[in-house]
Every structure is written in structure tokens, then in C-alpha cells.
Design a protein around this nucleic acid. Sequence first.
DNA 1: TCTCTCATTAACCGTTTGCATAATGAGTTT
DNA 2: AAACTCATTATGCAAACGGTTAATGAGAGA
Lengths: 228, 228
Amino acid sequence: MKITKMKKAPAAKIKKIKEEIVKPNVRALQKEATRATILNSALQVFSEHGYEGSSTRDIAAHAGVHHALIKYYFENKDSLWRAAVSFLFERQASEMDFAPPAASTKTREGRREYARTILRQYVLYCARHPEHARLMVQESVRDNDRLQWAADSFIVQTSRSAEKFVRLMQREGVMPQGSAPAMVYMMVGAAQMFYTLAPEVRRVWHIDPFDKNVIESHIDALQAVFIR
Amino acid sequence: MKITKMKKAPAAKIKKIKEEIVKPNVRALQKEATRATILNSALQVFSEHGYEGSSTRDIAAHAGVHHALIKYYFENKDSLWRAAVSFLFERQASEMDFAPPAASTKTREGRREYARTILRQYVLYCARHPEHARLMVQESVRDNDRLQWAADSFIVQTSRSAEKFVRLMQREGVMPQGSAPAMVYMMVGAAQMFYTLAPEVRRVWHIDPFDKNVIESHIDALQAVFIR
DNA sequence: TCTCTCATTAACCGTTTGCATAATGAGTTT
DNA sequence: AAACTCATTATGCAAACGGTTAATGAGAGA
């Protein structure tokens, strides 16, 4: 029995792959869709209620599926959270581009333009995906296993990139001098707070921080403050 | 019976007050101490785990008292949270002084000095009481009754003060031009993020954001960025 | 067509949650 | 010293929690 299976396997596999290319498996597609729906709901719920304040049942209900599916797809609450965080940082890496264009280092105006572009890019990212900062802020106010994991897996890397950027801009006189860690947190805070706290902004200032014009004026202000 | 009580009341009251002045009631003192301990624990736990992530039992255990005392002193979880937030904003009001000194408006250097003082004061407040921003950030990422109450009761007021300050400084050329709401959130974010996310800062940068020298260099950087 | 697979749901377990009520006993009053 | 007040604890309850197991039934493979 074992041997026959071994002999059959390759041919069957090839056939399966062919069929999937031509007429993709309905079941497999649905499965991926369900997984994505759960992950998306997890992002929403975790980012609004924090890890401990979110229940797997709420997440499942938000996704419109039975809560047992969370165990089926993600093993447990903790793994689901890690999957959500991984998704966030991988999406950020794919959407943000820190590489300086070759021309940017030649003239002072070129360097300033590069700095402006980075800040603008980052603000647009924060406005496009406010759940990223929301989720991470809730997790970074206290030290625990999840923060340690997130730091080792993602935050250290992105922080090093940001540090490099700040030091480069300071060296070239485009950004004010001062402690690099402080400068990084100031920049990040100044860029994301407006969208992270959007519900407060709406209630207190009666403006929509996600409105195109509002975003643009925020970008202008951020650039005016941080870039010389 | 009602009448006799009415007649007795004044004399008894006076006697009680006299005794309390000379030898303050041990029980009353203990009561106030217990209440304060619970409120303090609530601040700690709420600010680290968010409202929904905090259990009244955890708060009671943190305070070293039975959880039924929370109902006794604060009625329920919601009221305890409101009491904690009230405490935070009242303490902030008592510790922060936004009034510009008369001399500050005469010379440009005077105005800059005033702006520097405000920023410095606020950073020191954030470093002294990181739980304030932690608790409020967790509550402001989504809209609900608690945020509405906090906004109406405190946030609108403090935001108006901050707005006034920003507009004044912009008018006098001490701070860069740009949208006032954006400028306020940028300043606040740049000032508090470093302390709100202290556990992350420690893990990622291997520095203690509450170290005196680190605080001072943060203040320097903040002033260098926002003040012209 | 008829199994068989497996994505999904139903039902259940032990624990924790917010909250309510009753019991207790140290401190105050008379 | 006895009676009383009230700050504190013990106990109980229904709901919600994370997680597990068994049942189900629509789609895939033979």
C-alpha cells in the first residue's frame, strides 16, 4: 500500500497542479478567502481593543465565521496576533521605499526633496493603514513576550532604517541636530498620532483627518517642521 | 424622632468636627488612603492594559484589597475609569502652567524662551506621568461613550489651550506655519511618544527614556525642531 | 455515482469576568 | 462596657472567555 502510493504520487500531483492552473480549486480559494477575512477582522479588532481586550469570539463574529475556525487556521489567539503583526510589517515593507535616489545626494535641494518624499510617503502610509500604529502602540506601552517578539522580528529593523535616514539627513544639514532616537520617535509620533487618534481628532476638532486636503496640510506642516 | 434628630444634629456635628481637628479619625484617614490606593492601581492597570483588557479583580489585587471594595468606593468599573481620568487631567492642570509671563511678548528672544519653557514643561510632565498618555491613547483609537465623555470633559479644553499656544507662536514667528490641529498633534506626539512607548524604546534602542540626560536631550531635540 | 476529504459548525469544559448580597469585625459612639 | 457604624471580606451568580472535541455536509477524487 505504501509502495503503490509512492508510485502514484508524482503523476497525481502533476495532474492536480494542471487542474488548479486551468480551473482553480473552488475549495482552496474559499479557504484562502476565509483565512484572509479572519486575519483582516483580527487586525481591526486587535487594533481597536488591544490584545487582552479582544476576544476570539468577537473577531470570529466580525469575520462572520464560527470562532472554532480561529483554532483551525491560526492555532490560538496568540498566533493569530503574531500573524496579524507579521502581515502589517510585511505590507509596510512592500509599500514603503527608503532607498535614496542616486540624484538625491548631489545638491542640497535634492537631499531636501528626498527627505520630503520619505516623510510624505510615511504619512500617506499612516493615513492608509491607521490600524498599524494603533495595534503597535497598544502593545508597546508595556513589556511582555509579544512586544519582545515584535521588537526582535520587525521593530528593530525598521528602527534601524529610520535611524539611518535621520543620521544621513542630519549629516547633510537637512534635519536639525539632536539625539537620533529622540528624533526618530518625534518624527514617527508627529506623523502617526493624527491618524492613530482619528476618533479623538474628529470629536475635538470637527475635522476628518483622512480627508485628502487635511492629509496634505498635515504633510506640509510635518515637512515645514522637520526639514531645513 | 425626626424632630429630636434635627435638634441634636448641630451640636453633635460641631463636636465631631472638633474631634476630627484635634485627633483625626483613624478610620476616615484609612478610608481615604484605601480609595487613593485603588485609584492609583486603576491608573497603572488601565494605562497598561486598556479599559477592556483590565479586570476589576486585577486592579483590586494590585491595590492589595478585596475586589468588592471597588463597588464600595467607585460603584462600578466605568465610574472607576472616569475617576482615574479625572484625576489625570486635574493633576495635569495643577502641574502645567500655560500662562505666558508678561515679559515674554516684548522681544523675540522672550517669546522663544516662553515657547521653550512650555515644551520643556510638557515633556517633563510626560516623563513624570507616562500613564496619562498611555491611558488616553488606548481610549482614543476608537469612538465610544468613554471617549466622548473624556473629550467633552477635558480633551476639548486642553486642546483649545494648545491651539491658542500654537497660533500665538506662529503669529510671532517662533513656530513654523501650518495647520494648527496638525501642529498640535505633531507637538504632542513628538513630546509624549518617547515615554508612552518606553518599553519599546528600552528594548529596541537599549536606552532608558526616563534617564535625566536622555530626557534633556529629547527636550533639546524637540525645541530644535519646533522653535525658530 | 459513490466514497472520501476537510472546511465549517455545534456542543462542551474549566476559568474569569463584572456585579450583587450577606457576613464580619475593628473602630466609634454613647 | 455595651451598642452601633461601616470599612472590609466571603460567597454567589450569570455571562463571557480561550480552547477542545465531535458532528456535519458540501465539494473533490475514484
